[in-house]
Each structure stands twice: as C-alpha cells, then as structure tokens.
Design a protein around this nucleic acid. Structure first.
Lengths: 337, 337
DNA sequence: TTGTATGCGTTATCAA
DNA sequence: TTGATAACGCATACAA
C-alpha cells in the first residue's frame, strides 16, 4: 500500500483522475454518488492527495512561515501558540524558524522562503541593526509579510505591536510613585524599535516628574546570562539605584539573581518592574510586578492580518498597524516599604 | 521579477534547464566556469529553485513534522529548540503542530502528514488513552516516526525518554529523607506511560521505606488551572499531606498557588518537589526543588535518531530506545525545618 | 456529470 | 560537458 496516488485510485474505481480529483475539491461539479464512492475508496486506500503536487499546480502552499528570535521564551511561545491555533483552524501549516538573534540567519531564512515554500511570513525581527533592504525583495515578489512586536521601522509592511511607549511611561511612573528616584533602565538592544520606544517612555516619565535623566543608569545588557550577571552586579554596586525597569523579561530575572548574590532586598532596597510574559510571576520571590503583553493575542492578530492579505490581496494597507495594550500588574517587587 | 523559474534563467543564459539545474546540485558534471556563470546570474535574478517542484520530483521534502501536546510549555519549547537547531544545520525545515492534548487532532495531523509533506515525524503524544493503531499505518508506509518523552507503549517505534522511574524514586526518597511521611503524588494522566512509570517510582520508594501506600494520596488533576486549584485545596485540607510530588511542572505551580491561598507554608508545613523544566526555579518563593529533564538534549537526540532513520533506512532498530537522565536539583521547597 | 489533455517547475535518463 | 525529453502527482480548461 505504498504511495497511493490519484491514478491508482482512479483505476481502482474505473474513473478518470480528474473525477477523482474533483471529489477532493469542494464545489466542483460531481454527483454526490460518485463523490461518496471516491471518498470511501480513498479512505480504504488511505489516500491523501500529495501536497507537493497540489501546491505546484496551485501555486500556493497553505503554509505560513513564522520567524522568531528564540523559541524557549515565554512571549514567543505564547505568540506561536496563538498563530498555530488560528492557522490550524484555517487548514494552514506552520513552519518555524529561530534566528537566535542572528541577522545572517534571518536573511537566509527569508531568502529561502522565496522558493514557494510558504504563502506568507510572520516575523519578529532579530536584534541587529543592519541593512534591511533585503526585505524589500519580499514586497517585490508580493510574498506577504507581517511583523509582530519587534519590527524594523524602515520597512513598510503591516505589523502588530503593543503600546510600548505608554507602558514604559506607566511602569516608570509607577516606580516613581513607589518612591524611587534613581531608576535604572535595562535594555538589550537600544537601536531596535522596541528598545527605543520603551526607553523614550522611561525618559519622558522621568522628565514629567522632574527627575534628571542619567545615562549611566541606562544599562546595555546582552543575551548571555553570565555576562549580564557581571554587568548587573557592578551596576547595582556602583550606581546604587533604588529602582530597576527592565525592557525584557530575561533582564528582570537577571536582576533577581544579582540581588540574591549581593543580598540586596527587593523591594525594600530595590524595586523591580519588567516587561514579562511569565505566567507564574506571582510565584517569584518576591512576586514580580510586570508589564505583560497580550502575547497569544498578538499572535492571533498577526496571523489574522496575514490571512486578510492572502485572501484579499490589496485589502490591507502596507502601513497597517495594530496596536494592542499591555497590562501593568502590580505585585510585591515594587511595593512600598 | 516575479516568479523567476529555471526556464527563464536558462534562457537568459542561453543554456538548457538541465544544465542550470545541475549548477544547483552538488556533484554533477558541469564545468566550473558555467556553474559560476549560472550561480551569479541566479543571484542577480534572485532565483530559488521551487521547493515544491523539487520535492515532487525527488519524492522528499527535507521537512520534519514536530507534534507536541502544547507549545506554551517550558519542556516542549526547549525540546523544539533542540530539534530546530539540528534540523536547521542539516538544511531541514520544521513543521509544528500542537494537539492541545486532543487525540482527534493528533490522529488528524498524522493522517494528513501521509501526503508527503514531511519526511519524518517527531512526536510527544497526547494524553489520551485510545486506539493507537492508526499509528501503525505509518510504519506501513515507512514514514519514520520518533517518540520523545510521552510515548505510547503499544506502538513500536524508536523513542527518546528519560529515566522516569528512577527519577521518581529518587524524588520520593528525597522527600522521605527530609522527613515526609504523607506524600501526595499529583498526576494528570495515570494511564499515559510517563504517568505510570513516574508513579511506580513513587510507590516503590514508599515501599522501600516502609511507608504504607495510600491511594487517596494519588490525586488526579486536570489541565485546567481553576479546576486544579479546587482539587488541590480540598486535597491539602482533607488529607493534610506533608509532602507533594508532582509528575508535571504545572501541578507544582498549582500546589504553590493553593498553598498561598491556604496559607500553608512551604517547606515548613509542606515540602514540594516536581518534574520541571523551569529555568528560574531558583527564583520561586520558595525556590523549587525539581527533577529536571534535559529537554533540549531530548530534542536533539530525537532529531538525530530521525536523521539516522532517514539517511540509513534499516540502520535503526524500531525498538531503539535512548534513555537520558534527569537531574534532581534540591532547593528550598524541600528543606528540612 | 465525466473524461482528455496539458502544464505547474524540477530533475534524471539518455543521447549528442 | 551539455541538451532534449519524460516524469513526478495533481488540477484545470475544454471537449464529450
């Protein structure tokens, strides 16, 4: 029973391949009777139309590529879950690619996707600031692309983001209201759009409350756990901030570890708030005040946007932008003494 | 520059399609000169060989399907990361499917993968105990399948698992040594193999230490956060265990939440240990003692096993079993008073 | 309603 | 070393 194809099925049924083919496509003219006969035989033979042949013929793959910087990350795995749910309901398949924040990989993935493997791409970009022009090749070829969360400002394509500036502003203001005056801002990539917007919210909140901006307190971190530990410990000791605002979940964890090491008590000596999609933030010691993005919803919005582009080309403006709101959830890590 | 195909490229070069095709395949006989000419022109045209045509022709897709019960889960996202890394290095693509622990979806995914979309499947099975015979269709058609972590005992196919029985035994013994005498075991699906093995380790450890087995202390939980909260609170109040061993990460979190609600102090009144891939277990309140599986490595072993099957059919015994060791990491949640 | 014939883009076989 | 041709499995235009 190897490799049943449409020909063998047709022969077994004494029908032509076109009739058999029709049975698997919805509306085509075919009598209910023969259709049932075909489908039942197909089940018996365990026949599945070969996807590659169909795709070649139809020039579309019913497949969406999802490119993210990393997989083992609460935000991205929740977003992917959202994408997967919607895509599956529509009968689409999901290809997953992780760039590890490596620009070269990102370019390579995108280039290779030009071969028809996917009908569209949903991407959260890698951190590196570089020449993004290769992306314009996409719009040339009309391979639809949707950005989510981490985007390139200089590429015009629909995107789903959150109100990063406002959230950052609120988060910083929250720290100030809790009595902080020396607030450090931890960032991984200042140049990336979310880095910039989130930082601007921080700066403006300081200004509003007449706290002088001190660029020493803006700390560049990395993706390496051990390097961050060194950086943060030195920062905490030398700059003695009374509040820390992290632009990325991982840096909140790094701050906790550093505080453990240095025996700095949170929130008494240092208050901590961070962007985070961690579902068990209430279980941390102390429970972590978070700016939480609607990660799953960001995924579903992104994939819905992509489907609109696929189903009604031209109906979606390339500059379309969906902005969702994050939530500031106050917990113990920013509690007043 | 829409849809450049091999024909157009060939015409532009005044060559035949076969020659052009050869330039993209490694070893074929072709002069270095023309090859270079072709490749440079291809770059200029931004030509990528259409994957669907190649796949149709070559009867393989260079694609691996990964089926997991859920995506937003530390264990699975780390395993997928491992799979992705290896697959990418080999030039393979990854299709992702989430079953949400729904057996119907699992069957449907598998059936549809019979159409050539993937060369092989890596799967962690859904929780439901049912007729798994549909899987045998796979071996009929020789679509290679590798199980990881959650497996069906009655299906013969290579698998990568961890030493669940031993880990459970050690975990339970650890609780006993810390002074526990009434140890609850929390499980989501007793019938699934990991449920069974992990439970047997628990039972045997009790026996070794002459603690009577009490089946009331084996608590069936669900995938629903709110239901678990009700179940666990009742259990904690009615059965007053002094130790809890959770077979799944989520249930350790649920136990923490229940203890917060009931103001039961961990580890003083109740010690908690659980299977978990949470990287920030040290940051929990209190830090959580875990049995940690080498999730990423499980992924890489599984995909390597699959590649062996793909590259040297017959070289892998269908009953091949790779067993990796989990680590028991002691933290505050099981500390003696 | 069903069948025939053609082509989707590629690669393998064979001939030149 | 290169070119012509057929075939992979399917879906559609057109004919019956």
């Amino acid at each position: 029973m190897e490799n049943v194809n449409i020909k063998q099925l047709a022969k077994a049924l004494n029908l032509s391949t076109s009739t058999v083919s029709r049975a698997f496509r919805d509306s085509s003219d075919i009598s209910k009777e023969t259709k049932d006969r075909i489908l039942s035989k197909a089940r018996e033979f365990n026949y599945q139309p070969n996807h590659y042949a169909s795709n070649l013929r139809e020039q579309r793959s019913k497949t969406i590529a999802v490119i993210v910087p990393e997989l083992a990350n609460n935000f991205f795995s929740q977003a992917i879950r959202g994408i997967e749910q919607v895509a599956r309901a529509k009968g689409y398949h999901i290809l997953i690619y992780a760039t590890d924040d490596d620009y070269e990989k990102e370019v390579s993935f995108i280039r290779h996707l030009h071969n028809g493997r996917a009908d569209g791409i949903i991407m959260s970009v890698s951190g590196e600031a570089n020449d993004h022009n290769y992306l314009n090749e996409l719009s040339h070829k009309r391979l639809p692309l949707v950005f989510f969360d981490r985007v390139y400002e200089d590429i015009v394509t629909p995107r789903v983001i959150t109100n990063d500036y406002d959230s950052s502003f609120s988060a910083t203001e929250h720290l100030i209201k809790q009595g902080c005056e020396r607030i450090a801002y931890l960032v991984i990539n200042k140049n990336l759009s979310i880095g910039k917007f989130r930082m601007q919210g921080y700066i403006d909140a300081l200004k509003k409350h007449h706290i002088p901006y001190n660029d020493q307190l803006v700390v560049d971190c990395t993706n390496s756990y051990s390097k961050n530990n060194v950086i943060l410990k030195r920062m905490l000791q030398e700059l003695t901030p009374d509040g820390v605002f992290t632009s990325v979940e991982r840096l909140a964890f790094a701050t906790y570890y550093a505080c453990y090491d240095l025996e700095i008590s949170v929130p008494q000596q240092l208050k901590v708030i961070g962007f985070s999609s961690l579902e068990i933030a209430p279980l941390l010691n102390p429970s972590l005040t978070t700016v939480t993005q609607p990660a799953t919803q960001i995924g579903t919005e992104a994939v819905n946007l992509l489907f609109r582009m696929l189903e009604h080309p031209g109906s979606v403006d390339q500059s379309e932008k969906i902005v969702l709101n994050s939530k500031l959830i106050k917990r113990r890590s920013t509690q007043k003494k």
